[in-house]
Nucleic acid binder design. Structure first.
Length: 461
RNA sequence: UCCGGCGUAGCUCAAUGGUAGAGUAGGUGACUGUUAAUCACUUGGUUGCUGGUUCGAGCCCAGCCGCCGGAGCCA
């Protein structure tokens, strides 16, 4: 089907030009003498206005259509005499491609994100979700651009895995065994040696360890792919399937890592502001008031760096009555994280060097022997957006840490080998793609930034 | 998983234990360079499910199901 994208027509169409557009009706107002149809084809936020005049051959058929019907329109562009749009189409031919039943769940106005989740197959037709999926696609491209421009290698880390990484969470098991009658060992345990891979297998919870693998040869790598958590956590910020971005850099320490995280954050925002201007404008007006100011503020600020120990002191001295305790050695709660960057530093903040006890085994042990070289990047209104660390590259210390965590050294032999054969200081960080998307659009539920969200008890669509 | 809240028309929501309503969408008509158009009329209901209390339950009680918010876990 030969057609002009509405995006192109609206941005560079000139009066007098003949165009053919196809799209879905956003709204149709009609009367005896004149009518207006707004068509949207998803190529941009705005719709194009098509004039419906009584002289139109199949005017009755066209006027009978309702929001949601798909149409093919050929006509001549002209300057619009009314406010609201610069340009409009005076059609010579209008064809109905597909009619729309009035039972369509997506209508002009007045519905909720909760309801739209039940009709996830139709919700990209709405302004909000349409804009969201354009921004999501653009942000994905921007992520790849950032790393590509800096010479990073994109690592396609495995989705099926037999290691449980940091024990980051409950894993989805993958098996080809007959679960009604699985093979048993003598002690009656299921015999996974008979399973497809000869051992127990799951969906990955993180690509980090494999990222470290490739960084130990190619020095600058990143992963960007799906991860899976079988945690029964039912909140607006958790999904069972989500995408993570995890760069890993060799010959690097915590300072290098922090610098990369700040540069990366600003790069994403700067590019979104210029490449998704219209869609972000919508989010600013209708989803989160002040969104654009928030993003510009991040862009213009020098991020603060604060020791965990100093952060705890500052929280305790703030006089604020927190719901959760602020003792040294405890994790920072969301209320603490927000207070730090909203009230203490008043800008995005890296809190660094957390207590060893509350962090995973792979983080680099500092000389004080009680903290590890890691950071959480906190931003106003959300809290943690990025978490990262310098990795422990000293074999003996790493082994000791793994034993503390009761890990089986044998199954991580490959990971330890990276420390045996030319080990180098390296560091990396991770961020959830959906949470980043929520931050830059103001959307408040992760189910509304994923095409077909998977959450406990629900994998429809 | 824990705590709290909510399930009423396609959608968004009202309704002291006493005849189930509005807006919007849909339909019909009028009118208009309209833009979430406007105006008039109009279709539309097993009040989430099961049981209980009561002369009488959308409303009170119990259980279940679903959704939402917060917490924990985390990204």
């Amino acid at each position: 089907m030969v057609r002009d994208e509405i995006r192109t027509v609206l941005s560079s169409g000139t009066p007098g030009e003949t165009v053919t557009v196809a799209g879905w009706i956003k709204s149709l107002r009609r009367s005896k003498t004149v009518g207006f149809m707004h068509l949207n084809d998803g190529s941009c936020f705005d719709s194009i206005q098509v004039l419906i005049e009584p002289t139109l051959e199949n005017g009755d058929e066209v006027s009978a259509q309702i929001t949601g019907a798909s149409m093919l329109v050929t006509g001549v562009l002209r300057e619009s005499p009314a406010k609201g749009q610069a340009i409009e189409i005076v059609p010579t031919q209008v064809d109905v491609i597909g009619t729309c039943d009035s039972s369509s769940p997506v209508q002009k106005a007045g519905t909720s994100f909760e309801f739209l989740r039940e009709v996830a197959h139709m919700r990209p037709r709405t302004n909000s979700l349409g804009a969201l999926f354009r921004v999501r696609s653009k942000l994905s491209f921007i992520v790849h651009s950032f790393f590509n421009e800096r010479g990073f290698v994109h690592a396609h880390t495995p989705i099926l895995t037999t290691s449980d990484c940091e024990g980051a969470g409950e894993m989805f098991q993958v098996t080809t065994l007959d679960m009604d009658a699985p093979p048993r060992r003598e002690d009656n345990a299921i015999d996974y040696q008979k399973d497809f891979f000869g051992e127990k297998c799951s969906l990955t919870v993180s690509g980090q360890l494999e990222g470290e693998l490739l960084a130990s040869s190619l020095a600058k790598v990143y992963t960007f792919g799906p991860t899976f958590r079988a945690e029964n956590s039912n909140t607006a910020r958790h999904a069972s399937e989500f995408w993570m971005i995890e760069p890993e850099i060799a010959f690097a320490d915590l300072q290098d890592d922090i610098a990369l995280a700040e540069e990366f954050t600003k790069y994403m925002i700067e590019n979104l502001l210029t490449r998704c201007e219209r869609d972000l404008q919508f989010f600013d007006q209708r989803i989160e008031k002040g969104l654009l100011d928030k993003l510009r503020a991040v862009l213009e600020s020098d991020f603060a760096v604060m020791e965990y120990t100093d952060a705890v002191d500052a929280l305790r001295k703030s006089g604020r009555d927190f719901e959760f305790p602020t003792d040294w050695g405890r994790s920072l709660q969301t209320e603490h994280e927000r207070f730090i960057c909203e009230n203490i530093t008043k800008r995005p903040t890296f809190v660094v060097n957390y207590p060893k006890r509350i962090k995973p085994f792979y983080m680099y042990c500092n000389d004080d022997d009680r903290t590890v070289a890691c950071f959480d990047m906190l931003v106003p209104r959300v809290g943690e957006l990025i978490g990262g660390s310098q990795r422990e590259h000293r074999l003996d210390i790493l082994q000791a840490r793994m034993l503390e965590h009761q890990m089986d050294l044998e199954s991580y032999k490959w990971y330890l080998d990276l420390r045996r054969f030319g080990s180098v200081p390296h560091a990396g960080f991770g961020l959830g793609f959906e949470r980043t998307l929520m931050y830059v659009t103001g959307m408040e539920n992760i189910r509304d930034v994923v095409l077909c969200p998977r959450v406990p008890g629900n994998a429809k669509f």
